[in-house]
Design a binder for these strands. Structure first.
Length: 494
RNA sequence: CGGGAUGUAGUUCAGUUGGUAGAAUACCUGGUUUGGGACCAGGGGGUCGCACGUUCGAAUCGUGUCAUCCCGACCA
């Protein structure tokens, strides 16, 4: 399948359009026939698969196991936890029937009214309810705890305004659901997983994130605390990349999950849940890409190195093939994923542009001229710099180059974000900086009312109370002038 | 659910006062090409979103309907 690559909109002209075109032209995903749903194409899925693999290993290192719970949830389960219903009820897809039949007038297939379900089923928007109703049967004693389980699944939320990867009706994610004997242990777990996410974002995705705690209004429905990692897109908006919730005993109480502790006393268990989704793909795309297309961090790139031959006839190509074979072997031996594209049906210029749009970190070009000189051309995607190098020893050079690129795109994204994170002390200044697409650190009086007013007037929300840097200091709320003991992070968000 | 817009080739779009379907690009075939998105020649592809109406005649006019996109409210 060939993609139409020409004419990618510039970021500066229309950021949303640029993003959309990029997702499609880099061959990552496309819209599905069903509104709000997307088809993740092989190249896009390969990136997600790599993320999945790395995260899964981290979960296992931290003592978690994978399991799987059902897609369909009885409607009554959802109403058990009051805040939880409130948060999700408006966006649930509901299964009401279990059979179709042919219409009598021959107009096609219709829902068989005789097959109406007694209790409707909800397609999971998240799995807390089904999981906690199951944990109830698993937990009797403190000896059954902790339960540290993760599931990789798809969930469905009937969103009003879908966007590829960032907000789709159906999305892929992992959700961890843990049960603990003590409050302290559960809180520690929630923070631990936030750190796992932050580590993954920064060291694998090359994505700088702010770790923090959500304000009461932004908190997950049913949680006591929501820990978040927030990244910045190139148009200056915030993107919630991962969350880890300390659920207290809310779900245990709603689903009557009690255990007998060491002192033979009955108590409710303490819970956490945490998740990241295919939205990470959106964060990745928005963080590093440029007007030539995607820029992938080498650690997650499905193809880390592409080799393009340049030749005039079959005889030349044979010579290049032979020389390239050993380079390919050498790179593979070093654990590098490499593609040698000697397809004859595309010209070199086309291939160059194509792999640039797809964000392949390193391109090696080898022509007859190079063959004679014992050189090749090395291009790095992050800077677009080209350099001629000796073929001899190129494999090791590529290894270090990939590391440099990984490091460089993180640094670039970090300084981009840091330049756009500002402190303000007046509301006028606040409005101006929000309008400029900045992350704004400002004093807030701590009330949901003020937060709501600010959101209404500026569309900015409190992204988090940051944990990565100390924002404690005496000041006055930018909106009400009431005393505040620390700054919080405001931004517009996706 | 409010406000705005659009449905014509795989895609992006043109289509005049109503007269029976076009371009670019993509695709297929052949040839020449190949150090930054090739060129020439030929070819295939559309019940003009759907329904009804007006008319000798509708992509074009009217009514209805469905769908999609953008802007809000909501959200991982």
């Amino acid at each position: 399948m060939a993609t139409e690559l020409k004419g990618l909109t510039k970021r500066s002209e229309n950021y949303s359009q640029w993003y959309n075109e990029l997702v499609v032209k880099a061959d990552l995903a496309e819209q599905a026939p069903v509104r709000g749903c997307m088809v993740i194409k092989p190249y896009g899925y390969a990136i997600w698969e790599k993320m999945h693999e790395v995260l899964d290993a981290k979960f296992k290192e931290t003592g978690h196991q994978n399991a799987y719970f059902p897609l369909l949830i009885p409607k009554s389960y959802l109403s058990r936890e009051a805040e939880h219903v409130e948060g999700f009820a408006k966006e649930c897809a509901v299964v009401t029937h279990y059979r179709l039949k042919n219409a009598e007038d021959g107009s096609g297939v219709i829902v068989d009214p005789a097959a109406k379900l007694e209790e409707e089923l909800i397609i999971r928007p998240t799995s807390e309810t089904i999981i906690w109703s199951t944990y109830k049967n698993w937990i009797k004693s403190y000896r059954d705890l902790p339960i540290l389980i993760n599931q990789w699944a798809n969930v469905m939320r009937w969103e009003m305004r879908p966007r590829l990867f960032l907000r789709t009706a159906e999305f892929l994610w992992q959700e961890g659901h843990t049960a603990h004997a003590t409050r302290e242990e559960a809180e520690a777990e929630a923070r631990k997983m936030q750190n796992v996410y932050a580590d993954f974002a920064q060291n694998w995705m090359a994505l700088p994130v702010v770790r923090g705690v959500k304000s009461e209004t932004e908190r997950f429905a049913g949680a006591l605390d929501t820990y978040t990692i927030e990244s910045m897109t190139q148009d200056g908006k915030a993107l919630q990349c991962g969350t880890s919730h300390f659920l207290g005993q809310n779900f245990a109480k709603a689903f009557e999950v009690q255990f007998v502790d060491r002192e033979n006393k009955l108590d409710y268990v303490w819970a956490t849940s945490w998740g990241v989704s295919t939205r990470l793909m959106g964060a990745l795309i928005m963080a590093h890409s440029d007007d030539n297309g995607l820029v992938l961090p080498p650690k997650l790139a499905p193809i880390q190195v592409v080799i393009v031959p340049i030749y005039k006839n079959a005889e030349d190509l044979q010579k290049i093939d032979a020389r390239v074979a050993s380079i390919v072997d050498g790179l593979k031996a070093r654990g590098i994923s490499v593609k040698y594209d000697n397809a004859d049906n595309k010209r070199p210029g086309f291939k160059f542009a194509d792999y640039e749009v797809k964000g392949v970190p390193v391109r090696l070009v080898l022509g007859m001229r190079d063959l004679e000189n014992g050189t090749l051309e090395v291009m790095r995607r992050d800077t677009l710099e080209k350099e001629s190098m000796p073929i001899e020893g190129i494999e090791d050079r590529v290894v270090t180059l990939l590391d440099e690129i990984q490091e460089n795109i993180f640094r670039k994204a970090l300084s981009y974000r840091d330049e756009r994170m500002v402190k303000v002390d007046t509301y006028d200044e606040f409005k101006e900086q929000i309008e400029n697409g900045r992350f704004v650190l400002a004093h807030w009086d701590g009330t949901p009312e003020t937060e709501a007013k600010i959101k209404e007037e500026t569309k900015a929300t409190i992204r988090c109370i940051p944990m990565d840097f100390d924002t404690t200091e005496d000041g006055k709320c930018i909106y009400t002038g009431k005393p505040s003991s620390r700054r919080v992070l405001f931004a517009r968000s996706y």
